[in-house]
Simulated scan of single mutants.
Amino acid sequence: MTSIESVVRAAPAELDAMRHALEIARRGPAKGPNPRVGCVLLSAAGDVLGEGWHRGAGTPHAEVAALADAAGRGTSTRGATAVVTLEPCNHTGRTGPCSEALLAAGVARVVVSVPDPNPVAAGGAQRLRSAGVEVEVGALADEGRALLGAWLPSVERGRPFVTLKLATSLDGRVAAADGSSRWITSEVSRHHAHDLRAEVDAIVVGTGTALVDDPSLTARNAAGELQRQQPLRVVVGHRDLPPHARLHGPGGELVHVRTHDPARVLTELAAREVRHVLVEGGPTLAAAFLAAGLVDEVHAYVAPVLLGAGRPAMADLGVTTIGDAVRLTTRSVIPLGPDVLVVATPDRHIDPHSTTEEH
């Protein structure tokens, strides 16, 4: 429990308003530097005075949007309760502090789902309390954290959230002995993977994969057309790409990070306000991110195909005994046509410079 948290005392009308705030927050962009946030303003009698959600970077925050909605309805917010999915910010960035906007509007009570983990923006609850506003934090906290998705752990860990994607045969191969890999998984799986690409801020591959597979790293719909929002395309390694590479074609911006250090890759992407990274390959890059303890989630698309030989999904992790295996906790198993998608999170990571396990 953080210093701003308290025992949650929320009325039924406030919990209903929080559920609605969570619902309207989902109308905001699912990716980008800013979180999804919703706000509902209630009168003392529990009537809705206004509502709003954050529509993306540079636009009014949810609290300000809700206050504007209330003003548009001609309703006064003095003495009102603000029900908001994320702690009101207390800093000036692209917009002003939401805590000050609520104070200026005469709000008397604020009910929050999730405290803001960003040290730059946090402090809104304390600012409001110091001004005499009653603040409750933790209402429907599990739902609030789920809404924030990759944004929340990214801010908490100070780096982009990393999803490692694998597409393998049943015996763990990503290509046959002759190097061919199209297609191991089914069309259903590939469509699902393109939807995943559309949800992330950046896709990362190594130069080896870029040179051998010549991917475009775009997010496409079922008709093969580019989706409206395209992720940043990131190539990691020192080798140059040929001018005819498909990565130079239409799609998201292409960034070449000339390093083999996964931590440096994430530092450079964090500077670009990237919150969610999808590592797509190849085996060497996947092993490097796992060995560095920088994989937060694994999406493994597994096809009922046996190759017996060919390129493995993972390069050497330095595991010499079963006790050192990288174990994961399965979060879900989703059938996709003939394939399955296994979503799992690592239980621990390997420290390549030590024999000590880090939990």
Rank of each mutant, 00 (worst) to 15 (best):
T2C: 03
E5Q: 12
E5K: 01
R9A: 15
A10H: 08
P12R: 11
L15Q: 07
R19C: 10
G28T: 01
P29M: 03
G38N: 04
L41F: 04
A45F: 08
G52E: 02
R55V: 03
T59H: 15
A62K: 05
A62I: 08
A65K: 10
G79R: 00
V83Y: 08
H91K: 02
C98I: 02
L102D: 05
A105K: 08
V107Y: 11
S113Y: 04
P117F: 07
R127E: 14
L128D: 00
S130L: 12
S130N: 14
A131S: 14
V133L: 14
E134N: 07
V135W: 09
V137F: 13
D142W: 09
F161E: 08
T163M: 09
L164A: 12
T168L: 10
G172Q: 03
D178W: 00
E187A: 08
H194M: 06
D201C: 09
V204L: 12
G206M: 11
V212M: 07
D214F: 13
L217W: 04
T218A: 03
A219H: 09
R220S: 05
L226I: 07
L226G: 04
Q227K: 00
R228M: 06
V234I: 12
G249E: 15
G251W: 06
E253I: 01
V255F: 00
H256P: 10
R264Q: 13
R264T: 04
V265G: 04
L266E: 00
E268I: 02
L269N: 03
V274W: 02
H276P: 02
V277P: 00
G281F: 05
G282E: 03
T284Y: 00
A287V: 02
E297W: 07
G308W: 02
A325E: 15
L328I: 09
S332A: 13
I334S: 11
V340A: 13
V342S: 05
V342T: 04
T345C: 02
I350C: 10
